[in-house]
Structures are given as structure tokens and as C-alpha cells.
């Protein structure tokens, strides 16, 4: 824990140099953000569709099917969007980051960089960090938007809930600052947590094949746990039922 905290501060200290070379960050946004697009969009759509179906079943018992839009949008924007997108991001991009850096270390590429007076923290680690932190909120927003569209597809197009009340009740219930901004804050925090864990595990991995494979597994397990725990803490701070 102490070592990873020190690693995090070193990382922040070294990120100044990578902002002078935005091309490096762009490359990392590509590999962790753009390449995660498909899984995020498809799973967002299906999560929204399932929410629409299950929500309709439950709401129907109380005769309030019109609240389906509220149910789908609030659960996506507040919780499922940031959390599920971050879990997918951890297993899709986090594991890739750990494996890449672990292999770089195992094949002594990082040591070679240091020999050439290139700081691997500034050249390799910091751009991956910022790429992940920038991608994560965007991915979560796309997940939520796609999920709401999925809920719309099932609720309105398939089942036949009234379209007007679906959207208008949603607009009345969702607050810009309270719900959407908090969702963005959550996903940014998750992005920081996932990328720091992935980078640290990769950087800290024993330089053997077994070590890299263990580090990759640990990244997925640790960051999933961290996401769920952070989610509880952030939710406790944000929505205290005031």
C-alpha cells in the first residue's frame, strides 16, 4: 500500500513531461479507450435491455410502468454505468496494461530505457495513466447512454410503454448535478484507481513469465474489489437521502 502510494505520487510528478508529448497519450487513449468501445457499447445495450425487461415486470405489479424510464436511467447513470463500465475496463484494458508493462520489464526494455537516460515512468507509465483516466468517464457515459437506449428499445418499442411518459418522467427525475455529474466523478475515480493498480502491478511484477501472469490476475481481482469498495464509499458520500 505504501509502495503503491509512493508510486502514484511519482507518477503524478512525472506526468508533466508526457503532457508536452500529447501523441503518447493519444496512443494510449486509442489502446485503452477505442479498443474497449465494442465491449462497452454492446454490454451497455444489453444491460439496459435487461433493466427494461425486469423493471417492467416489477413496476407493472404496482401499475406504474411509466416510471420505467426513471428506473432505467437512474440505475444506469448513478450506479451501473460507472461500475460495470469500470469492471469491464479493468478486465479489458487494465489487464492489457499490466501484461504489457510486466513484459517490458521481463524483457528488460525498461532497464534499457533507463540506460538511455529515458525515464520509464515518464515515457511508458504516465501516458498510460492519463490515457486511462481520460477514457474511463467517456466510456461510462457511452455505457449509460447505450443502456438507456436499450431500455427504450425494450420498454417502448417492444413492450409498448408510452414514449412520452418514458422520456418526460426520466427528465423530471434525473438531476444534472446530483446524478449525472456524480456519475462522471465516480467513473473518473474508478479510472484513476484501475489504471494505478494496473500500472503498479505491471511495474512491480517479478520479471518472469509466471510473475507477469500472476500480476495480470491480481490486477483484475484487486481493481474489481477496489471499484466495488470505492463505489460504496462514494455513494455514501453522494446520496445520503437528503
Amino acid at each position: 500500500m505504501g509502495v503503491s502510494t509512493r508510486f502514484f505520487f511519482l507518477l503524478l510528478l512525472h506526468s508533466g513531461t508526457c503532457f508536452r508529448r500529447p501523441q503518447l497519450i493519444l496512443r494510449e487513449i486509442f489502446s485503452s479507450g477505442v479498443l474497449s468501445l465494442i465491449i462497452i457499447l454492446v454490454s451497455g445495450l444489453f444491460v439496459g435491455m435487461v433493466l427494461g425487461m425486469q423493471g417492467y415486470e416489477t413496476l407493472q405489479t404496482y401499475g406504474s410502468e411509466e416510471a420505467l424510464g426513471v428506473l432505467v436511467s437512474l440505475s444506469l447513470v448513478r450506479e451501473l454505468g460507472p461500475v460495470v463500465a469500470a469492471l469491464l475496463f479493468a478486465s479489458r484494458a487494465g489487464s492489457a496494461i499490466t501484461a504489457e508493462i510486466g513484459l517490458m520489464k521481463a524483457t528488460e526494455q525498461l532497464a534499457a530505457m533507463e540506460m538511455m537516460a529515458v525515464d520509464p515512468l515518464a515515457r511508458v507509465v504516465a501516458p498510460r495513466f492519463w490515457g486511462g483516466v481520460i477514457s474511463m468517464p467517456l466510456l461510462a457515459a457511452m455505457f449509460s447512454a447505450m443502456g438507456i437506449f436499450g431500455g427504450y428499445l425494450v420498454g417502448v418499442v417492444l413492450i409498448g410503454v408510452d414514449e412520452g411518459s418514458f422520456w418526460s418522467q426520466m427528465q423530471a427525475a434525473v438531476d444534472i448535478r446530483e446524478d449525472i455529474l456524480n456519475g462522471v466523478i465516480k467513473s473518473t475515480v474508478f479510472g484513476i484507481a484501475v489504471t494505478v493498480i494496473a500500472l503498479f502491478e505491471g511495474y512491480d511484477a517479478p520479471p518472469t513469465a509466471e510473475g507477469v501472469s500472476r500480476a495480470t490476475t491480481r490486477t483484475v481481482v484487486t481493481s474489481s474489489l477496489a471499484i466495488l469498495m470505492l463505489d460504496f464509499v462514494l455513494t455514501a458520500f453522494m446520496f445520503r437521502g437528503v
Binding site: 501523441q23 493519444l26 496512443r27 487513449i29 486509442f30 479507450g33 477505442v34 468501445l37 436511467s73 447513470v77 477514457s135 468517464p137 467517456l138 466510456l139 457515459a141 457511452m142 449509460s144 447512454a145 447505450m146 438507456i148 422520456w167 426520466m170 427528465q171 423530471a172 434525473v174 438531476d175 444534472i176 446524478d179 449525472i180 462522471v184
Partner: peptide, 29 residues
Amino acid sequence: RTTIDLWVGVFVAMGIAALLFLALKVGNI
């Protein structure tokens, strides 16, 4: 390089579009 730039541009534009969709269509701005 240009392909990466293009895709990152598309990605960021989609993300911002999703945020705008959430803010304008879903939220009560």
C-alpha cells in the same frame, strides 16, 4: 499515426456526444 488520431477523435466525440445526450435528453437542464 493518422489512423490513431482519427480513431481517438471519433472516440472522444462519441464520449462527449453521450455526455450531451445524458445532460440534455435525460437530465432536466
